[in-house]
Design a protein around this nucleic acid. Structure first.
Lengths: 233, 233
DNA sequence: CGCTAATTTGAGTGACTTCAAGCACAGTGG
DNA sequence: CCACTGTGCTTGAAGTCACTCAAATTAGCG
């Protein structure tokens, strides 16, 4: 977590990410730009911890972050990932609550930190921005509700297929149809909400059924519609 | 679903509910007041259905509404309840998505409908109101994340205990320590995310352990800290 | 109308099945 | 070499099925 050699320019990030900041005027954007601090975080670093007070939020300029909660017995439940263009920590800032999740670096990342005051000020100054922010939160809330229903009603097999498709949407496939994200079986299990061994067994079942191919952590997706059928989508 | 005999006054609702509308100026409040339409809905009525387009949101003036999603095989997953002072449907309005849940009346209700345009206008005019709305959404999002972790990691027994405590917080107990909400065992199961029979069995276990007493749908909570221990809270 | 009869709905039980977790251990590869 | 992957085996939690019983609704009918 050392300071950034050359600050990333917000404008570039905007182009990459969702439309959250597109409604800011040039001087509002500059306001955020001037007040931000950027750092590089290596794999394994914890950006913030469940229970911490966060007084600002982070924009992901590069890298991958996993956002998770720690359950009663120490088991992680991965809630979402954040990649270039996403923002993290804004929930706790807005609701003025303690962080309810932990954010850990999966792939070396570069993050900009923007103080919460600036966020509140921008909401005050620019209602279009406020609306974008609300829409982002509402979208996440909808996703969360979907996931609750899935996890409550679907089998592990169905959920794993669904997660694979979700990862495909989020991180996409390379030219060899291989998922552009490297996760351990345990991390997969912590997304699906199951045991590591179950993920291992089911992945080799999917492989036997010709839906995927495996080489270590590389997962090649061969049959999307097959997986969709398994996932009941 | 007949029109209301005498319109409830928004001011009264504000006093009852959370602080969402407290930052509105008198004329902004009047704006909402003038544009609202109120109706009475009997038990069993569906206010809106998953997949519907909603062009406004509802304030609950009286009664209880259950908000749920329908899973692949038709099984309900109850996401939350809304009672006096709560608002429903605002998520879909803000995110401009189709409703991702169904809202059904559990106890005869009186609801005010306020067009989405007014909501957007108020957000535009009043940034304090916008912030309140964001905080509400963020809070719900935090709750949803907690529930995901619970349902993924806790046993049915633990979850049922937790839900009983949640119901106690939401609807409170009467003078006999009986939960002031009447749910079928199936509805309880649809909250916990389990089978009806499992709820029945576990409830009688809790009864045998002296945590609760049962008379039909009436549930008397005898030992809160016992339930908290069961729920791992 | 009023009073059964008939049907529906929800609660509860027992027997059985199955999914998936847990444990122990063996490779393996970065 | 240690963390990660993979496999076999066992066990338990919870789902499913089939059924009874009680209460509540509705229908039927003199």
């Amino acid at each position: 977590m050392k300071s950034h050699p050359h600050l990333p320019v917000c404008e570039n990030c905007i182009a990459a990410g969702h439309s959250l900041f597109r409604d800011l005027t040039p001087d509002q954007l500059e306001k955020a730009d001037l007040n931000k601090g950027c750092s590089i975080y290596k794999r394994g670093t914890i950006i913030y911890h469940e229970g911490n007070r966060i007084n600002g939020y982070y924009c992901v300029n590069r890298g991958v972050i996993k956002i998770y909660k720690t359950g009663f017995d120490g088991k992680e439940q991965i809630v979402r990932f954040a990649k270039r263009g996403d923002i993290i920590g804004y929930r706790s800032v807005l609701s003025r609550e303690l962080a309810c999740t932990t954010a850990k670096v999966l792939e070396d990342a570069s993050l900009c930190f923007i103080p919460g005051d600036i966020l509140f000020e921008l909401v005050k100054l620019n209602s279009a921005f406020a609306l974008q922010l609300m829409q982002l939160t509402c979208k996440e809330l909808g996703d969360a509700n979907n996931f609750i229903t899935d996890i409550a009603q679907k089998t592990v097999r169905e959920r794993l297929a669904e997660i694979l498709l979700l990862l495909r949407d989020t991180f996409e496939l390379d030219e060899n149809k291989v998922l552009k994200i490297s996760l351990t079986r345990e991390e997969l299990a912590n997304m699906v909400g199951t045991a590591t061994e179950s993920v291992i067994r089911l992945l080799s079942e999917f492989k036997a059924d010709g839906y995927i191919e495996l080489q270590g952590r590389k997962i090649r997706i061969l049959n999307v519609s097959g997986l969709q059928k398994v996932a009941n989508l």
